[in-house]
Simulated assay, not measured.
Amino acid sequence: MRDWNILEELWQVIQDRAEHPSAESYVSSILTHRKGVDKSLEKVGEEAVEFIIAAKNQVPERTISEAADLLFHFLVALKASGTDVADVLDELAARRK
């Protein structure tokens, strides 16, 4: 099994960009966009469609790449919506019981 710590590290970076916006940061540009949370949700939708197409067409490299993009933008959208990823993880854990 792979190291899942990368998701925690990524979440920390997203939180840092939210707390300390930077003009050079892609994450900051999404979180501070004039469209508000809608911008991050648009990105999730875009990446979800790209993932679906790659998976449907059975292109492993693209499926992996688009899955990574989708996970990343999903985390950014969680932050933009004021949702803590820990709460999502707690919900998943509760469903396993």
Score class of each variant (00 low, 15 high):
W4L: 12
N5E: 13
N5R: 10
I6T: 07
I6F: 09
I6Y: 02
L7N: 02
L7H: 07
E8C: 10
E9M: 11
E9N: 14
L10Q: 06
L10R: 05
L10T: 06
W11F: 05
W11Q: 04
W11P: 02
Q12C: 09
Q12G: 08
V13R: 11
V13H: 10
Q15K: 15
D16F: 03
R17T: 03
R17K: 09
A18W: 08
A18F: 04
A18S: 10
E19V: 03
E19Y: 08
E19I: 07
H20R: 10
H20I: 02
H20C: 09
P21Y: 04
P21G: 06
S22P: 05
S22M: 02
A23D: 11
A23F: 07
A23E: 14
E24I: 14
Y26W: 09
Y26N: 08
Y26P: 04
Y26Q: 07
V27C: 06
V27D: 00
V27F: 04
S28L: 02
S28R: 04
S28V: 05
S29E: 10
L31W: 01
T32V: 11
T32I: 12
R34N: 10
R34I: 13
K35V: 12
K35C: 12
K35E: 12
G36Y: 00
G36D: 06
G36N: 05
G36R: 00
V37C: 11
D38I: 15
D38E: 15
K39L: 06
E42T: 12
E42A: 13
E42R: 14
K43R: 15
V44N: 00
G45T: 07
G45P: 03
E46D: 13
E46M: 13
E47P: 02
V49S: 13
V49W: 09
E50R: 00
E50C: 05
F51D: 01
I52W: 13
I53Y: 05
I53W: 07
A54W: 01
A55C: 05
A55V: 11
K56P: 06
K56E: 12
N57W: 02
Q58Y: 08
Q58P: 09
Q58R: 08
V59F: 09
V59Q: 09
P60E: 02
E61V: 07
E61A: 09
E61H: 06
E61K: 07
E61M: 10
T63V: 04
I64G: 05
A67I: 02
A68K: 04
A68M: 06
A68Y: 05
D69Q: 10
D69N: 03
L71M: 11
F72S: 05
F72L: 13
F72A: 07
H73K: 08
H73V: 12
F74I: 12
L75M: 15
L75I: 06
V76D: 01
